[in-house]
Write a protein that binds this DNA or RNA. Structure first.
Lengths: 184, 184
DNA sequence: GTCTATACCGGGATAGAC
DNA sequence: GTCTATCCCGGTATAGAC
């Protein structure tokens, strides 16, 4: 019957989701180049041909894995901007957002990933710089963006001693004064 | 004669150096995985077999390219530590140290590069943390390390608008207060 | 629609000619 | 000692059986 608990379309969707999850994990762990379609298929308990059928290419699979959910806008008084920035950082540190990690993991070696990160930061940068004024507003905003990014890098990707597994709240409160010096 | 202006050993050394330089540039630009022995050989105006003969493996070639010159020790009063940290950053930003860039470029995707960066930062971290005291000294030191690293990343690797090509001195003076909040 | 088998390419590494 | 030719592996992608 077509009204069974697991219809064909439903199964199809489940498989697709399984592939996506497996790909996210592997891309986040090993980056684009070192992740193979074969490994993704194995991890998702299917086969390489199916992965290709669903996503067309490894490039496209990565694109779908790494596409960023829209960030809330950063605006308002300096104090509010500071809070919003740190809230965004908290979000990245607490939700083990594997999609973002996948993007970050490859940002230095994969052109598309680099472009994704660049756009994301540039967008944030403009918003922060808008409320700043001054000659070096864009530079300050860029540094703030890089600092929050660096926190994620050190904690979740490089896993530095003293940062790896550290309480996000501790990191945020340590960074708060530093951020203030740049966007005050 | 064996006393010619360019002896065999001399020529050999020049070729070796040319390969090393070419490799540095390519590794810094494209990372470990996307750099091929063939491309290195072409850029150095030799052939792949010679590269292998001199360095044994791609891994070893990378190791020699990325091996860090010893950093000056970071110690003394908080003010002095701050100056030393920022001086080290200035050094990275001014000398287009391609060897360091090669290491940083691959730190998220190549295990050996990750380990190299981790050790380098950890070393600095211990020195900074030693003069700090307090519960979260290592975390603060790690954040400082990541912040200076982030500056190089944003300016020279990601080439963010507002940071790409920015005057090192400007970056340093903008970061100084931020660093102070963490190591005071 | 799903999977097996394979084509095809480009990589690192090596053997042997000169 | 230097380079040509080649091996072999593992990658993405595809064709075709079920």
């Amino acid at each position: 019957m077509s009204s069974e608990p697991t219809s064909r379309a439903e199964r199809r969707e489940r498989t697709r989701a399984r592939i996506l999850t497996a790909a996210r994990d592997l891309f986040a762990e090993n980056g684009f180049d070192r992740t193979t379609i074969r490994a993704v298929a194995t991890a998702a308990a299917t086969d390489p041909a199916l992965v290709m059928r669903y996503f067309g290419s490894k490039e496209e699979l990565f694109r779908q894995v790494a596409e960023a959910g829209a960030e809330p806008p950063i605006e308002g008084s300096p104090g509010r901007v500071e809070d919003l920035l740190l809230a965004a950082l908290r979000d990245k540190l607490t939700t083990g957002d594997t999609g973002t990690l996948a993007l970050l993991r490859s940002m230095l070696t994969h052109p598309a990933a680099a472009e994704g990160v660049r756009q994301s930061i540039t967008e944030q940068q403009r918003q922060v710089a808008a409320g700043l004024g001054g000659e070096d507003a864009m530079t300050r905003a860029a540094l703030v963006g890089m600092i929050t990014l660096a926190a994620v890098l050190g904690r979740d990707l490089l896993k530095l001693e003293g940062l790896h597994g550290a309480d996000p709240e501790v990191i945020i409160e340590l960074l708060r004064p530093a951020v203030q010096t740049l966007i005050r």
